[in-house]
């Protein structure tokens, strides 16, 4: 999958020590060439010598199926947890309305403000922005 590959060995020490002569895209090419001279061919040789044990299609299919089952299970567990917690919160709020309306309004305002802050916070907006969708 390598897109670029030049395999010239290191020419000599003086070549390695020279600084980038030009700016812009030529400098980029020069740096790529330097990389090839310094490490590129060694990496290629190492790459070729590494032969991982590739799992069979059956075992990967099994892995995919198991992982999907696990995720489905996790989703149901989360949904159940969501309904239980929601039920508890709603019951608490109903009790609060019946006992003290003023306190209920204060709680609602505080929760609304916290929710707004959470939604506009840059951390939330940045998180997961097209992270796994290439």
């Amino acid at each position: 999958m390598r897109r670029k590959n030049h395999h010239d060995g290191p020419k000599n020490k003086r070549d390695m020590e020279t600084e980038s002569p030009i700016e812009g895209s030529s400098s980029e090419e020069w740096e790529a060439e330097q990389f090839e001279q310094l490490v590129g061919r060694h990496l290629k040789q190492w790459d070729d010598s590494v032969t991982p044990e590739i799992p069979s299609i059956q075992s990967l299919e099994q892995l995919a199926g198991d992982q999907r089952d696990r995720l489905r299970g996790r989703l149901w567990r989360d949904l159940l947890l969501f309904w239980v917690v929601s039920g508890m919160i709603l019951s608490g709020l109903v009790l609060l309305v019946q006992r003290d309306l003023k306190l209920f309004i204060i709680v609602q305002v505080v929760v609304l403000m916290a929710a707004c802050l959470f939604v506009v916070s840059p951390v939330v907006r940045r998180e997961g922005r097209g992270k796994w969708t290439n």
């Binding site: 590494v50 032969t51 991982p52 059956q58 990967l60 299919e61 892995l63 995919a64 199926g65």
Partner: peptide
């Protein structure tokens, strides 16, 4: 399709392993 995904994972296994090792 789990089989199609398994084929893709198998075909790219070496490349991924070598990349992670480097």
């Amino acid at each position: 399709d789990d089989r199609a995904l398994a084929i893709l994972l198998r075909d790219n296994y070496s490349l991924l392993y070598r990349y992670m090792l480097k």
